[in-house]
Design a protein around this nucleic acid. Structure first.
Length: 481
RNA sequence: UCCUCAGUAGCUCAGCUGGUUAGAGCACAUGACUGUUAAUCAUGGGGUCCCUGGUUCGAGCCCAGGCUGGGGAGCCA
């Protein structure tokens, strides 16, 4: 027999008139009689009713917000209006006291930036409880989606000797004595004495490794931490984040879009089904927070409706060239409201993407066929268009409020073309000889994409800052916890 | 890295044109009440006004530099 029962289980089963024990943390103690406690198994709190005569007064004094308690008694239908069950406790034990003069979390609205500085305690709040339960559900949804479709979960290395991925600045991994770095004759660092005998870094992407596996196992995906040493200070970037990268042999760019779209819809539906109460809470929270904002900054649709809308509607699919035409023909452009110029060949700026997604289409948009010059070396070259312009089979999925949530492509599988691209992008062949060899030995068309897990969570939870959807955010100058 | 806004009680904030002893709500303490729902009511304690320097008879307020945080941009997922 369990030593105690989860509050989520009590609400699910409602074992009325039976003896139960709960272990949980105090949220409020009202009227010297009503204790609201949470054990984090659900967004809901349990009301514990304490008959004053049965409990030591000194003990009742310790029922401060944040204290940990164990309570036993009979579960009864509640006489009050805020809940349908309550525990009439005859036994109460304080497992861990909580000094109210020092505990920073109160039963009142805190700003998210304040709670960010209390990352070790913010799990105790309703908002972060809901966010991290949903983070769990989404992680589970990702594995379920791929597993149901015959994908194999591939663990790409976190330490990599490859520096050719080109996805951003990398963190160096070394065990050299930094106070006494060995030098080569020309004064550089002598990496031959380092742990791997060569420079090593934390991975910025598992894609290249996933491609190697896909060219044998057909369908694989990675899901793991990824690191970028960029000095990015935005609400959408982390130095350490989790990425999902499926890679599929024999898929072309259209099949890649189909996979990505069904993947996102699956995740949203899974969250709606398994995280409903948390989503309802976050929706209420967002509505209340929106009241403090100017009208133009408020959400046009409540959170759950937004997720249902995306889950039930086709994504818009356009080419880069069409996107440029839409922008050039927009009133926004004609009134010169874009800060950055629009013409074929530019990399789309945030303001352009926002216009397309939030103003023009008002739904997720998949853009394909980007100019070859602004995309990565491994993306498959398309035939030049009527005007002789070179594009690649790339795709970005943009969603309202977040911007780019997925980036992917069909990969260049033709050896000669890929070698040529390496030259153009100044990537030494001997750095990625192993990648090139897959194009020599039984190459095939294949495609894949990368998805930032935290951006997915942002979209599902409605949280506006990426630092609030990962337990311990790593950003420039911040690794306290 | 750039632009921009902010930093006043444990938290959220107000503080006028530079002027006497810096305020409110919540939280906390004490008491009242006892089926409450972030309970309510009364009373009370609580301040390095981010830091350093400057201007001034006088700075929370003005100026310079710095630190920290938010928002936006770039880079991207």
């Amino acid at each position: 027999m369990a030593s105690h029962t989860d509050i989520a289980v009590l609400y699910a089963n409602k074992p009325l008139d039976t003896q139960v024990t709960v272990k949980a943390w105090v949220r409020t103690f009202r009227n010297d009689q009503f204790l609201a406690v949470s054990d984090g198994t659900t967004i809901r709190t349990l009301q514990i009713v304490l008959n004053k005569e049965e409990h030591d007064e000194a003990k009742l004094k310790k029922l401060n917000t944040g204290a940990c308690i164990s309570a036993s008694g009979i579960l009864k239908p509640s006489l009050g209006k805020g809940q349908d069950i309550e525990l009439i406790a005859d036994q109460l034990e304080i497992l861990g006291e909580c000094d109210p003069n020092e505990f920073p979390i109160q039963m009142k609205r805190h700003t998210l930036d304040f709670l960010r500085e209390k990352a070790h305690l913010r799990f105790r709040t309703n908002t972060f409880g809901a966010v991290f339960r949903l983070r769990h559900h989404l992680a589970f949804a990702i594995h379920a989606f791929f597993n149901e479709r015959g994908f194999f979960y591939l663990h790409a290395p976190i330490i990599t000797g490859s520096d050719a991925e080109g996805a951003g600045e990398m963190f160096k991994v070394t065990n050299l004595d930094l106070n006494n770095v060995p030098r080569t004759e020309d004064g550089g660092v002598d990496f031959s004495q380092d742990f791997f005998g060569k420079p090593a870094n934390l991975t910025v992407s598992g894609q290249l490794e996933a491609e190697l596996a896909a060219l044998a196992l057909s369908k694989v995906y990675t899901f793991g931490p990824t690191f970028r040493a960029e000095n990015s200070n935005t609400s959408r970037h982390l130095a350490e984040f989790w990425m999902i990268e499926p890679e599929v042999a024999f898929n072309d760019i259209v099949a890649n879009q189909d996979l990505a779209e069904s993947f996102l819809k699956y995740c949203f539906n899974y969250a709606l089904k398994h995280g409903r109460e948390d989503l309802e809470f976050l929706q209420e929270r967002e509505i209340n927070e929106d009241k403090l904002k100017p009208v133009e900054d408020r959400q046009s649709m409540p959170l759950i409706q937004r997720l249902e809308f995306v889950a039930n509607n086709e994504f818009e699919r356009i080419t880069y060239t069409e996107a440029i035409d839409i922008l050039l023909n927009s009133n926004h452009y004609k009134k010169k409201k874009f800060k950055f110029d629009v013409k074929w060949g530019i990399d789309l700026q945030s303001e352009h993407e926002r216009y397309l997604v939030e103003k023009h289409f008002q739904k997720p948009v998949i853009i394909t066929g980007y100019p070859a010059a602004i995309k990565a070396f491994y993306m498959r070259m398309n035939e030049p268009d009527a005007q002789g312009r070179e594009t690649v089979a790339a795709m970005d999925i943009l969603v309202p409020g977040i911007g780019e949530i997925i980036g992917g492509s069909q990969r260049e599988e033709r050896y000669d073309v890929l070698v040529q691209k390496c030259k153009q992008f100044n990537i030494p062949e001997d750095h990625i000889w192993w990648y090139l060899e897959t194009r020599k030995f039984g190459t095939c068309p294949h495609a894949g994409f990368g998805l930032g897990f935290e951006r997915l969570i942002m979209y599902v939870t409605g949280m506006q800052n990426i630092r609030d959807v990962i337990p311990f955010p790593r950003t420039p100058l911040n690794a306290e916890f």
